[in-house]
Simulated assay, not measured.
Amino acid sequence: MNRIIKFSLLLFFFLGGIQAFGQPAVKINNGIIVLDDNFVVYREKNYLKTIDSLDKVLKNNPKDTSALFYRALFYTRSNDILAKPYQVDPKALAELTIAKTFVERALTLSMQDFKLKVLRAEIFAGLCYRYSGDESWKFKPLEITARKKSFIEYKTKANQYYEELAKVDPHNAYDYERRLVKYDYPIK
């Protein structure tokens, strides 16, 4: 009987230890959230199982704030300037919009993690980037007006969020101030 209890406890701690490593390590570096995996560029293939697991968790429990954060992070990393440099990539814009929705939902559900707020600012800055490559020949006047409105809205919010981060985290204020969106909408 004693061996069964010891084995059960050992198995419990072993499986509990595996679960603890289920979430990828992240850190704030130069004002952005980075995956602490020793790669400069995000490699989606390394995280396919984690992404699949997060999608399942969110399907079963859409209020899981940790899953919302990590899924938004993976959407952001797979659609940032390094992963998809073409500014008018419709898939990148759509997935960054999903990331924005996930972050806002996590904030609505009272998630207090500082990294979530950094990710939110980064997502809004990424959305600005997706509107910064507008070529006038590609869009009709009504589309240009709608895109300019979205750009201004995202720029305002991104800068507001970065300024808030600089106040809350004064030791890294320089990093957040460098990330402010300073360019304007390209079509006049």
Rank of each mutant, 00 (worst) to 15 (best):
1 M>K: 08
16 G>E: 02
142 L>G: 03
181 V>K: 05
148 K>N: 06
138 K>A: 13
85 P>K: 08
157 K>Q: 11
123 I>D: 03
41 V>Y: 08
91 K>W: 07
23 Q>Y: 15
108 T>W: 01
39 F>H: 14
14 F>N: 06
54 L>H: 05
69 F>M: 01
36 D>K: 15
137 W>V: 10
60 N>A: 13
25 A>Q: 15
111 M>W: 05
12 F>W: 07
172 N>K: 11
119 L>F: 06
109 L>M: 12
31 G>E: 00
46 N>P: 00
184 D>T: 13
149 K>V: 02
53 S>W: 06
66 S>T: 13
146 A>M: 02
34 V>I: 13
82 L>R: 07
98 I>E: 13
90 P>A: 11
166 A>Q: 04
168 V>C: 05
173 A>R: 03
22 G>E: 10
42 Y>R: 01
152 I>D: 13
130 R>F: 05
117 K>F: 14
119 L>S: 01
112 Q>P: 02
116 L>P: 00
85 P>F: 15
92 A>D: 04
90 P>F: 06
73 L>K: 01
96 L>S: 01
97 T>Q: 10
170 P>H: 05
143 E>P: 01
158 A>T: 07
129 Y>C: 09
105 R>P: 01
79 N>E: 08
25 A>T: 14
135 E>V: 13
119 L>P: 03
172 N>Q: 13
138 K>M: 14
125 A>N: 07
47 Y>R: 02
148 K>W: 03
134 D>R: 07
49 K>Y: 08
110 S>A: 15
10 L>C: 11
42 Y>F: 15
164 E>L: 08
120 R>A: 04
172 N>V: 01
35 L>S: 01
136 S>W: 02
179 R>F: 09
16 G>W: 04
171 H>P: 07
106 A>F: 01
118 V>R: 00
125 A>T: 11
130 R>L: 04
20 A>L: 10
102 F>I: 00
89 D>H: 06
97 T>F: 04
39 F>Y: 15
25 A>C: 07
75 Y>L: 11
42 Y>P: 02
152 I>P: 00
175 D>A: 12
30 N>S: 13
70 Y>C: 02
154 Y>M: 11
9 L>D: 05
33 I>F: 03
55 D>A: 14
163 E>F: 02
54 L>I: 02
107 L>P: 02
124 F>V: 06
123 I>P: 01
170 P>R: 12
53 S>G: 12
7 F>R: 12
84 K>Y: 04
13 F>E: 00
87 Q>R: 15
152 I>M: 12
32 I>R: 14
115 K>P: 00
183 Y>K: 15
129 Y>W: 15
82 L>I: 12
148 K>S: 07
